[in-house]
Amino acid sequence: MSIFKHHAKLETNVFFLAVGILLTVIVGGLVEVVPLFTIESTIEKVDGVRPYSPLEQAGRDIYVREGCYNCHSQMIRPFKDEVERYGHYSLAAESKYDHPFQWSSKRTGPDLARVGGKYTNDWQVRHLINPRDVVPESIMPGYPHLKRPLDQSTIAGNMMALRVVGVPYTDEQIKNAKAHLVEQATSDAGAASAVAMAYPKAKVGDFDGNPQVVSELDALVAYLQVLGTMVDFTTVDHTKIQR
């Protein structure tokens, strides 16, 4: 208690003040870091999370390129109002294959962590081309240029680079990247067996309504339609999730 009685001496002495600040930082740092060494992993283990398919990954790259993250977060916080509006709060495991992850706090538009399956492909296409067609009050710009053909030449290389940083793409998946990409964007659900085997729960079909070309719209809509759909939250054991 004597230190509190003589706090003025501590505050007016540069040396003792610096030592006090250093000790406070050290103690605070240990309190934050030490518990991490007592758990097996900081990422909870949940079933269903897989790497993105080539088409979904290409769509994600377009999402980042166009700056969609500037207005849309992909992180539902564990608060009642957030869960009621958007769905189950986000789990770290859902983003373990995202480089970079899309968690953020800036929302001009709604959070997109659970947007997969919420709207039809046609709605997503119309919204991307001219948002006012489906949401009259929207201030989002249109992206009609996404109708252009998707550059497929880099997808295998991108997947190889992602494997270097921990995304578990197999040699077979990388070898068949272009074939899987085209198949997902042009096949019907019954014909896309190879895609379904390699990437469970991947949505397949003509996403943009133009079967003549695999467009950037196809890729971006495929990415949006998979967000939040990999994990079956009715089977998640919340007692085993490390928060």
Results as ranks from 00 to 15, higher is better:
240 K>D: 07
206 D>N: 14
235 T>D: 11
227 L>T: 00
117 G>E: 11
200 P>V: 13
153 S>I: 08
132 R>Y: 02
195 V>E: 10
50 R>P: 00
188 D>S: 13
8 A>P: 00
19 V>Q: 06
221 V>W: 06
205 G>M: 05
223 Y>M: 04
179 A>K: 13
161 A>F: 07
145 H>E: 15
182 V>W: 07
131 P>N: 06
40 E>N: 13
199 Y>W: 11
183 E>S: 15
91 L>E: 07
188 D>N: 15
48 G>Y: 09
47 D>W: 03
140 M>H: 05
133 D>E: 14
173 Q>E: 11
73 S>M: 11
134 V>N: 01
233 F>W: 10
27 V>F: 12
48 G>V: 04
118 K>H: 12
36 L>D: 09
151 D>M: 02
47 D>M: 01
150 L>G: 02
209 G>F: 06
240 K>Q: 15
23 L>I: 13
98 D>Y: 12
10 L>Y: 11
128 L>G: 01
132 R>M: 08
138 S>W: 09
13 N>A: 08
13 N>L: 07
53 S>W: 02
191 A>H: 14
222 A>C: 03
104 S>E: 07
172 E>L: 09
6 H>A: 05
201 K>D: 09
93 A>Y: 08
71 C>R: 12
131 P>L: 04
94 E>N: 06
10 L>E: 04
122 D>P: 01
232 D>V: 10
149 P>T: 12
106 K>N: 11
13 N>P: 04
53 S>K: 05
89 Y>A: 14
23 L>T: 05
112 L>G: 03
178 K>T: 14
33 V>H: 05
165 V>F: 05
